[in-house]
């Protein structure tokens, strides 16, 4: 599958204004955008693993929720920097549910009372985040012509 600039522009996964800036950086340093994306992928895969491990814990604690919130926040920042705004949104949900805040009127979150309820909410957001992340990764792999 060949991915052109136009494909990226039209993709709803990516905020083109932001991503375009990264590409402009290539002008005076070739491969900068790619190296940045690689950094992100390395970082994100680690964080996704950590989130997954926390979600699957048998008896999650309040501290685990806090940790999830902080991981969500962290990934939100780097996703935002690359213009991956769907991933960014889902990470923001993880962050908020981890802090027990139902910031987007998500129905299960409105009913959530125990730690496990919140973990369930995070689970849903996590699935979306991972899903979109994989799609974005694939898209960008095609664009850069390099498997990320």
């Amino acid at each position: 599958m060949s991915v052109t600039q136009e494909t990226l522009e039209n993709s709803e996964l990516i905020n083109w204004t932001i991503f375009q800036e990264l590409l402009l950086m290539d002008e005076d340093e070739e491969g900068f955008a790619l190296s940045l994306v690689q950094t992100f992928v390395d970082q994100a895969s680690g964080i996704f693993k950590e989130i997954e491990a926390l979600i699957q814990k048998q008896d999650p604690s309040e501290d685990d929720l806090k940790r999830l919130a902080s991981l969500g926040h962290y990934l939100k920042g780097s996703a935002a920097a690359l213009g991956l705004h769907i991933v960014q949104q889902e990470c923001e949900r993880i962050q908020n549910y981890g802090n027990k805040i139902n910031f987007d009127d998500y129905e299960p979150a409105a009913k959530a009372s125990t730690v496990n309820d919140w973990i369930d909410c995070i689970q849903a957001a996590f699935k979306n985040a991972l899903d979109n992340y994989e799609k974005s990764k694939e898209l960008l792999s095609g664009f850069f012509g390099e498997q990320l």
Partner: peptide, 16 residues
């Protein structure tokens, strides 16, 4: 900053 992506990007902007 503690996020590598942000560090790279931001310092790039600045160095420009």
């Amino acid at each position: 900053e503690d996020d590598d992506v942000c560090i790279q990007l931001c310092s790039k902007f600045l160095m420009k």
